[in-house]
Simulated assay, not measured.
Amino acid sequence: LTSQPNTKPVEFSFHNSSVADLQDEWRRFTLSADDIALLNPNTGTMATFHNQRYAEITKAIYRRVPVLIQEEPPQNHWGISFLRMFHMAGDSHLFCTRDKLEAQGYVLQGNHFVRGDEHYLPLYEAKMMHQFTHRWATYETNGKIRNMTPEELRDPNAMSIPRYWVDARDVQARLDFWDHGWLLGFRSITRSTDERTAIFGVIPRVAIGGKLHLVFTAFKPQLVSTLIANANALIFDHITRQKVGGTNLDLYIVKQLPVIPPHTYTQALLDFIVPRVLELTYTAWDLQPFAQDLGYDEPPFVWDEGRRLQIRCELDALYFHLYQIKREDVDYIME
């Protein structure tokens, strides 16, 4: 289909649980070769829409908003690059357990191990972070992982404890090009049926492993804040769900997601977005470098679920507006 530009539109149906579902007109939609090229310009692969209306909403977005990285002709508005810092299998010889480090005389300070001038950094995995928080989960001493409790989240000194630690020198060797004391990453392990599919967040400058991919851009932290807000917005999540067919948010998918370009952000928009991203993100002392890069030098914000919900709703509303989604389509998406 994609190799024949003049091919007539073809009918598709996804997310069916029985043959009878194929008879449901609500589940069927049509796409042309040009539609597929619009939605996935780099790969020409399919999006798995639930119905025709979702397809039309998404196509309209792609006509207005550029993809994150287009390969031909080359286009990368955000100057984005990606990095997988440590592979859980191939780099496992660099990982140290708590028992090993304590046996060698290292002392746990926060979630870092220290012995004199030697320093081991926590190895963050995807399951430890979530949208707007780097403290989603923590490992117990028995090796089991659990969610951080509300009490822990309200404590700005509480930190996620990993399974493994990595020598700070090995981390620096892989981040020698990056001048900031924080990182931006996203979970590459996900599903379209999860509560949220696109999960991006700011993480301290630590070791990163597994299914947690890092994102880098040369834009100032204020604009990086808008990228974080965009990637965690409901409308962005809705689009991402149409692209993920399995359990991985692969780089080729991320590159072909529509992202509001940096030149869109006026000072008024920055004044609205940046303080909200800061408040959602900076709830613990270990992200102070991110706060300082945004010009904020006060203590972390208190974790307040009601307040966080309000701020996120405000950001979601803004991005529905920036993506130019009609009110009736917003209602349909939110059903």
Rank of each mutant, 00 (worst) to 15 (best):
T2D: 07
T2A: 13
Q4V: 14
T7E: 10
P9D: 02
E11L: 11
N16K: 15
Q23F: 15
L31M: 14
D35Q: 01
A37R: 13
N40M: 03
P41A: 09
M46N: 14
M46Y: 13
R53M: 03
E56Q: 13
T58Y: 07
Y62N: 05
R64I: 04
E71F: 06
W78L: 01
F82S: 01
M85A: 11
F86P: 07
L94H: 10
T97K: 09
L101S: 13
E102G: 02
V107S: 10
Q109I: 14
Q131K: 12
T133P: 03
T138M: 12
Y139V: 06
M148Q: 10
M148A: 10
T149F: 05
P150R: 14
E151S: 09
D155P: 07
S160N: 14
W165N: 11
R169L: 04
L175D: 01
D176M: 06
H180E: 06
G181I: 12
L183V: 11
R187M: 12
E195K: 15
T197R: 08
I203Y: 11
K220G: 02
T226D: 07
A229C: 12
A229I: 11
A231G: 14
I235A: 05
I235V: 15
D237T: 01
G245Q: 06
Y252I: 05
K255Q: 02
Q256E: 01
P258V: 02
I260Y: 06
Y265K: 00
A268M: 05
D271M: 00
F272Q: 00
F272G: 03
R276M: 01
L278C: 10
T281I: 15
T283V: 15
L294W: 06
L294I: 08
G295S: 15
E298A: 15
E305H: 13
G306A: 09
R307C: 05
I311E: 11
L315F: 08
F320R: 08
V330N: 03
Y332T: 13
